[in-house]
């Protein structure tokens, strides 16, 4: 059975490759920092399960030190010039899309067709991780096709991948850092504390007030925690179930589904949801770190109003 470890091995080898090529990059004055940063990341993916909790914690501190002290630089690996790219794009034409399309096609194939497949009673891959495993397979298929079809140098996947990784820099690992922060917050009881404050101090005595407190509370709490999943149990247990369902007799399916979607309005507005909001500006080379959040705020606020109204109208049939 193929497990998540296969994908971690791939990622570990990729980051190890970034580290090795960073070490040999004399054009980057901070190459030692880049080598150490991607090297530690590789170590985490290759051996994280054998380092122990404190070992992983020290690894994290190493990453923080390198990023916090500004020891990582943006490298400029040799690549094709804009003019060369235009010429290449004309030469290859639509063949360029074939490897790119392997990503959605192989992922869809993996999730829809290969996931239920069994070999001698054992599933081909861990059904819980089918998407991530399929993504790993899709990248390999796409890369083989790209190298064969477009005749790019064999080192180009790692060199070009390193170019993009250095464009994003330390922000690459911010989503994983925030996920870990969520776990520490849960351990410290931060969510329970905020939930207690909300349910003690906010008005929930009319039906509309209670709906608004739940929807806006989900969005606001999600902004603070960076994740609607962290906000959901607290506010649903504190407001939705006892008051909206218990006291006002609302439909629990309507209330909880729209409640979660109100939380997603918060996800669109918080820097703590880094993979959606902070990594894209880095990836798209936009200088303003908060450009994507600012663009999303109007949609998020309008959708929060829409969700509040929908819940009020749909959850309480006369």
């Amino acid at each position: 059975m193929i497990k998540l470890g296969f994908v971690y091995l791939l990622a570990g080898l990729m980051f190890a490759g970034f580290a090795v090529f960073s070490a040999g990059d004399r054009s980057n004055g901070k190459r030692a920092g880049n080598t150490a940063f991607w090297g530690l990341t590789a170590l985490s993916f290759l051996a994280g399960d054998r380092l122990g909790d404190l070992g992983n914690g020290l690894l994290v501190l190493g990453l923080v030190l390198l990023a916090g002290l500004g020891l990582i630089g943006r490298s400029q690996p040799a690549t094709t010039t804009p003019a060369e790219r235009v010429a290449l794009s004309e030469r290859f034409g639509n063949r360029l899309f074939a490897p790119a399309l392997m990503l959605p096609l192989v992922v869809a194939l993996g999730v829809l067709a290969l996931k239920p497949l069994q070999l001698g009673g054992v599933p081909l891959m861990d059904p819980k991780q089918a998407t991530l495993i399929s993504l790993g397979g899709a990248v390999i298929v796409g890369l083989v096709l790209a190298l064969a079809l477009l005749r790019q140098p064999l080192t180009s996947p790692l060199q070009e991948g390193r170019r993009l990784a250095d464009t994003v820099g330390w922000a690459m690992l911010l989503p994983q850092f925030l996920a870990a922060l969520g776990a520490v917050f849960a351990l410290a009881g931060v969510g329970a504390q905020i939930g207690h404050l909300v349910t003690t101090w906010l008005p929930v005595d009319t039906r509309f007030a209670a709906v608004a407190v739940y929807c806006v509370g989900m969005a606001a709490f999600t902004m603070l925690m960076g994740n609607a999943f962290a906000a959901f149990p607290v506010l649903t247990g504190g407001v939705a179930i006892p008051i909206l369902v218990g006291h006002f007799g609302g439909n629990p399916a309507v209330i909880t589904s729209i409640g979660m979607l109100s939380g997603f309005c918060g996800t669109l507005m918080t820097p703590l949801a880094a993979n959606f909001n902070l990594v894209p500006p880095a990836l798209l080379e936009i200088p303003d770190r908060y450009a994507v959040i600012k663009t999303q705020v109007p949609t998020a606020l309008l959708m929060l109003i829409v969700n509040t109204v929908l819940m009020y109208v749909l959850a309480f049939p006369r």
């Binding site: 791939l10 290859f92 790993g136 990248v139 890369l143 790019q152 790692l158």
Partner: peptide, 20 residues
């Protein structure tokens, strides 16, 4: 760690960008 798995696409994206 699974949060960071989407970056596995970077080498493929990079190679395709290199080729236009």
């Amino acid at each position: 760690r699974y949060v960071s798995i989407a970056y596995l696409a970077l080498p493929l994206v990079g190679v395709l960008e290199r080729a236009g």
